[in-house]
Write a protein that binds this DNA or RNA. Structure first.
Length: 212
DNA sequence: ACATTAATTGTGT
DNA sequence: ACACAATTAATGT
């Protein structure tokens, strides 16, 4: 497992940090649908994603899930970072999108490494930044309520994560992730199909844009 | 292979 | 948003 940590982060971190990561990190594999973190839970570790992808969501008052963003390898959870200085509970749900390998780092190490390693500091800040701006975009398009854009982005992201154009998914699933209703998704999907952006059969969406 | 059923998708109001 | 029609996949006989 040392090897996979190196592979992923060799170019980001110096030797000393790499070995500390490998030593203090707790390796874990999760399979699709596994819950890594739920709202209200105390945060004791921050996850580094080695492979696979995770889905980060909040809940609204009604308990509906709202997708915030995906995490892929090389990412870390920005929300964890914002919580780590104070002892706070999670305000998000994190579930595995697919079979994934992660490394759990105790949050005590965060502050330590932040002070000691500039590469770590950069990594965390960078990650925090990009997640933050992604969330801003999400909120933006949510406010303007143009589902078109949101759906297209969703499909693109999804195809990227699946590393392929074929998504095994139903309209209802999409509607849940996007906080919309199945009917409007169906209508938009129909449009996209006519526009030649996607093709679909039952339980399958092909994103034509993503093909070699 | 066929019929039955369930789940997904399409459409009009 | 709702109801219903049409289509497709899953299952049993």
């Amino acid at each position: 497992m040392n090897t996979i940590v190196e592979e992923r982060f060799k170019y980001l971190f110096e030797e000393e940090l790499l070995s500390k990561i490998a030593r203090s990190g707790q390796f874990k594999t999760v399979s699709e649908g596994d819950l890594l973190m739920t709202i209200g839970q105390k945060i004791s570790h921050m996850p580094l994603i080695l492979s696979g992808s995770l889905k980060v969501m909040t809940e609204d008052e009604k308990g509906d899930d709202l997708l915030l963003y995906y995490l892929e390898w090389g990412d870390t959870c920005a929300m964890t970072f914002s919580c780590c200085s104070k002892k706070t509970v999670s305000s998000i749900n994190v579930i595995a999108e697919e079979k994934s390998e992660i490394l759990l780092i105790p949050i005590e190490n965060m502050e330590l490494w932040m002070a000691k390693f500039s590469s770590w500091r950069n990594f965390v800040l960078e990650s925090y930044n990009s997640r933050f701006s992604e969330m801003l975009k999400s909120i933006d398009s949510l406010a303007f309520d143009n589902m078109d854009q949101r759906l297209k982005k969703y499909l693109r992201d999804k195809a990227l994560i699946a590393r392929g154009a074929d998504l095994i998914i139903t309209h209802a699933d999409i509607a849940n992730d996007l906080h919309s209703s199945r009917v409007v998704i169906s209508r938009l999907m129909k449009k996209l199909e006519i526009e030649g952006i996607i093709k679909q059969r039952r339980n399958l969406v092909e994103v034509l844009e993503f093909k070699g």
